[in-house]
Simulated assay, not measured.
Amino acid sequence: MTPNRLPRDRDIAQALRRLFPHLEDRDERAIVDRALGSRGLRTASPEAAAWLSAVAYARHSFTDYDQMLSDGYDQESARHFTLEALNDVLRGWGARRVVGANED
């Protein structure tokens, strides 16, 4: 973690390390940037911002989700069919929690 980070940036990065102890630095930076750039996460707790940003990042970066949307699947179907791959990524990062079938 870079010592010159702003407080919110630092707090989200610390939350990521607690939630995902095996997360690589390059993924951490991308997830923190995603959280900081999200209007919907501006008032979220650092833990909520870290979790939601990590799930979105993993879904878009490490599953076929975007390709499925391009192929005409609706969001719900694409999320259903990529759920196992998404949770595999989260587990690989050391997460103790995964995304359930009815959770975003």
Rank of each mutant, 00 (worst) to 15 (best):
R39L: 14
D11Y: 03
P21E: 11
D25R: 15
Q75D: 04
G92A: 10
W93K: 00
E28A: 12
F62Y: 14
D11T: 04
A30D: 12
Y73S: 05
R34I: 06
Y57D: 09
D27S: 09
L19S: 09
T43S: 11
A15D: 10
G37W: 13
S38K: 10
R96A: 14
S61K: 06
R8V: 01
Y73A: 08
R18G: 01
S70N: 11
V99R: 02
A58Q: 07
G37E: 14
R39I: 14
Y65F: 15
N102R: 07
S53Y: 05
I31W: 03
R10G: 05
I31T: 02
D33A: 15
D66Q: 08
A58I: 07
D27C: 02
R42V: 13
A54L: 06
G100W: 05
A44L: 04
D66H: 07
V99G: 01
D66A: 04
L86R: 10
D71V: 02
A50S: 06
E84H: 12
F62N: 10
A58Y: 05
G40T: 08
L52G: 03
V55P: 07
D64E: 11
P46K: 10
L90D: 06
A78H: 02
N4D: 15
A54V: 02
V99N: 00
N102I: 00
R5F: 03
P3Q: 05
L52D: 02
Q75S: 07
A95C: 10
D27Q: 12
A50P: 09
H22D: 15
T2W: 04
L52T: 01
F81W: 13
A56N: 14
R8E: 09
L90E: 12
S53C: 13
V89F: 00
R5L: 06
R39P: 11
I31G: 00
R42Y: 02
R96P: 00
F62V: 09
F62H: 13
D71N: 11
R91W: 03
Y57M: 03
H60G: 12
P46E: 15
